[in-house]
Design a protein around this nucleic acid. Structure first.
Lengths: 163, 163
DNA sequence: GTAGCTGCAAACAATTTGCACACCG
DNA sequence: CGGTGTGCAAATTGTTTGCAGCTAC
């Protein structure tokens, strides 16, 4: 299972590199860059691959390490698309050291991994309510929505698309 | 040479062995039995262990096999409590070959694994709505709620989380 | 009697960790 | 320079698969 990614224009302008507390190493910047470049969720392997395309021979280990670090800091969101596949994505929302990020969820395209960030107060409330009704406390929840983005939606009953 | 299987006669407590398509083997019955006995989510390992306690020397492989089979048939629900841990639980709701089961979610206790089944039409609707608004189709979602059941909730100490 | 189960061990895939070396600051 | 970041390879873990024998029907 190899996703053939033809990334046209592998040229990447220097975007922000606000490492913060991590050393400003080439790899750290590259990883955040490739993460920022992908507006969808990607697996560590995909990121590693993308990194290589850029000419950055980063090690898979390092990718994982930074991914975990970023996730811990709340700078990336993680979803588990399948049993053994975790997908990461840069998260631009506030992430105070204390905050750990605002609670939100994603609608992820099953084909391209592109995603939309959504905050659903109703869902939070619902989860809290049903759990409380059952006598549960310290309620947390995980929620991910998957689907096909407009670009990859199969024409069902509307007009068929030529391409 | 395999394990000494003390099978005095054909002593088979038929609790619920409506396998349907699986052979009515001792292991199949035992697995469903132990699954039915546990009213909470359990890992394959835990089930395997419980099986042993009953004197059924079932192999871990077989447990996984039946678990996967049952999950495929919609007779068990699966939640991924952690990255690499899947937990299974018998599900009593209808499961037509076409239906694939009624969509529902669970509130799972982080301590004992006990769970409550909940159906949240609101959430389904919400997920559908936000996804549609984003132009997504073929929407599916995964949602699990974790917490502490009344039995494991701290009655006095309210501020338990400090980290 | 035969095809489908069972189970042990080896295979697997994603992720983590140990350890030696390179680089940032 | 000092310590942190890096990377290769080996270790881990939960789950799957191959294959020979056993069992249900």
């Amino acid at each position: 299972m190899k996703t053939v990614r033809s990334d046209p224009g592998a040229d990447r302008p220097r975007l922000s590199a606000p490492a913060g507390r991590v050393r400003n190493t080439r790899q750290a910047v590259a990883i955040e860059a490739v993460l920022a470049d992908a507006d969808g969720f990607r697996t560590a392997q995909e990121l590693f691959d993308a990194l290589r395309e850029r000419g950055e021979q980063t090690g898979l280990t390092t990718v994982y390490r930074h991914l975990g670090l970023l996730a811990e800091q709340g700078r990336v969101d993680v979803v588990k698309a399948s049993d053994t596949e975790a997908r990461y994505r840069l998260c631009g929302v506030g992430h105070e050291p204390d905050e750990a990020g605002v609670h939100h969820h994603h609608v992820v395209c099953r084909v391209c991994g592109r995603s939309v960030e959504v905050s659903g107060p109703e869902v939070e409330a619902w989860a809290d309510r049903v759990a409380s009704e059952a006598g549960f406390t310290e309620v947390t929840h995980t929620l991910e929505v998957f689907g096909l983005c407009p670009e990859h939606s199969a024409p069902a009953s509307r007009g068929q698309r030529s391409s």
